[in-house]
Each structure stands twice: as C-alpha cells, then as structure tokens.
Design a protein around this nucleic acid. Structure first.
Ligand SMILES: [Mn+2]
Ligand SMILES: [Mn+2]
Ligand SMILES: [Zn+2]
Ligand SMILES: [Zn+2]
Lengths: 131, 131
DNA sequence: TCTTATTTTAGATTAATCCTTAATTTATAT
DNA sequence: ATATAAATTAAGGATTAATCTAAAATAAGA
C-alpha cells in the first residue's frame, strides 16, 4: 500500500456514483499528487478490478468507466452525453437457464439501459424539427 | 447502393451469429474486394447501425462487435477468448420502473452474461493449479 | 449526356490503453 | 539499523481501434 494507491482509492471513494473514466481519475489524483503517472493509475485500477473491489464498466462510450459500488445494480446511460445513473434490478429475474449456458462458467451479468437524458432528448427534438 | 456496400452486407449475412469485429469484417470483405478501404467499411457499418438493421455491441473486449440479428436477445461472452453466444431473454422481465428512469427516454436494454467458455475455464484451472 | 450529390480511398490523425525499463520505494531478514 | 529482496512507480514510447481529411471516383437524376 503506497501513497499513490491511497490517493487513487480516496478519489474513487469521493467520486462514488459518478462513474468516472480512467482519465478523470488520473486528473483528480494529480490534483493532490502532481507527479503521479498514467501507468500507476491504470495499474492500480486494474488491480482493484482484479481484487473485485472495483467494477470496470464498458457502457459503449469509448472509455471505460469505473464504479466503486460493487453491489448488484444496473446502469442507465445517455447515448447523447454519456451521463450514467445507477438503477436497481432484480438479479433473480436474470438467470441463464442451464440449457443456454453453452457450457460456460457464468461469472456475472451486466444490464445496461440506454436512452437519452432530459437535456439530450430535448436537444434531439430541436435538431429534428429544425433539420 | 454500391458494390462495396453489397459486399459488406453479404459478409454480414454470411457471418450471422459470429459477432465479428469491424476488422474481421474488413478482412473478409477484402477477400472478394481487395482494394476496399478501412473507412468504407466503418462508414457502411455505421450507416447500417443508424438504419437499425445492424447492432453494434460493446461486450467489453476492446473492439466493437457487429450483429445482423436484431431480434431481442442477450449475449454470453467468454472473458478469456471473447467467444460470443446468443442467449434468449425475457425483455418483459427487464423494464425500468418509471421512478427509476431519471427522466430518460429509454431506447433499449442490453444484457451481457459474462464468464468462461469450456476451453478457457479448463485452461484457467490448469494455470491456477500449476501457479 | 451532363450535372450534381454521394461514396470511396489512402493516409494522416486521434485517443485510450498498454508496455518497457530503469529508478525508487516498500517489505523482510539479519 | 542495515542489507537484501521484492514490489511499485514514472516517463515516455508503442499499440491500435476508430476517426478524419480532402481529393478522386462513382452513382443518381435531369
Ligand atoms: Mn454504478
Ligand atoms: Mn447476437
Ligand atoms: Zn444526455
Ligand atoms: Zn473462452
């Protein structure tokens, strides 16, 4: 456990719920530790993911998002601006019946609702009516 | 409608169920049309996605996967090798209750089961017992 | 055919992520 | 405390999927 890791974990805890990207985490850590390197942030994030204390979310917006909240939940993402919200979901309702596992050892299930947030939805409406 | 597009669509139809990456599609198209460019493949894929006749899947393995099967289904992906299988799912069981939409216009829902295919699971076991 | 709009192309560019390697830091054992 | 070994960090280069650019080619329409 090094000062760098402490700082990274601190930032993750402070940004709980915001689903930051690796770059955003890097920037926030650099505020308190200006000499930290890119590689250290990436390495530490991967280690935390490996340990199971951090979720790496691929929500389809190019960059990975990180989530310190490892409780069972789904995500709602805005296809316009990338805004992410946590949403509850019933993990019981989503179990793969044995005849459909193809012999896989199933580890988990990710659920992503996609749509447009109020801001992006109104913008889209405006674009459509004017174009 | 150009010969390039016809060739790309042909490849997509032939590879139904294999969830190819853009690069794999590019390679297969190049077999029958050696001078086709990268940009044309990407442009065409994006147009088909825009039209709604092709799904762009972010299964978390770096590259996007494309799926000509636009019927309601979920995916099962191997975290080891990237193998993808289609799995049925009950879309009725997954509707976001109004109090959890945060005002979003919800477009769709993506469900991804993650795990290890038989080959990768046995490999992992081997690695663990020997390391 | 002639004109216009669209599409294609090659190559450069971007941007996130990963890798390499040497220096530093931390942990462990005298 | 000191020496040794192991783990971590930093700088910057490499990688790579994807995007952009601008000119050339092609398709569509009159
Ligand atoms: Mn979350
Ligand atoms: Mn599929
Ligand atoms: Zn939005
Ligand atoms: Zn596998």
């Amino acid at each position: 456990m090094t000062p760098q890791r402490r700082a990274i974990i601190q930032v993750l805890l402070e940004s709980a719920g915001s689903h930051p990207t690796a770059e955003q985490i890097f920037t926030r850590v650099r505020d308190v530790m200006p000499d930290i390197s890119h590689a250290t942030v990436y390495n530490t994030l991967h280690e935390l993911v490996e340990m199971g204390t951090l979720l790496e979310l691929n929500l389809g917006m190019r960059e990975q998002r990180y989530d310190i909240n490892t409780t069972d939940h789904a995500h709602l993402i805005c296809l316009g601006c990338g805004r992410v919200e946590d949403v509850p979901y019933d993990s019981e309702a989503l179990t793969l019946s044995p005849e459909h596992t193809h012999g896989f050892q199933v580890v988990d299930c990710r659920v992503i609702f996609r749509g447009y947030c109020p801001a992006c939805a109104s913008q889209e409406r405006h674009l459509r009516s004017s174009g």
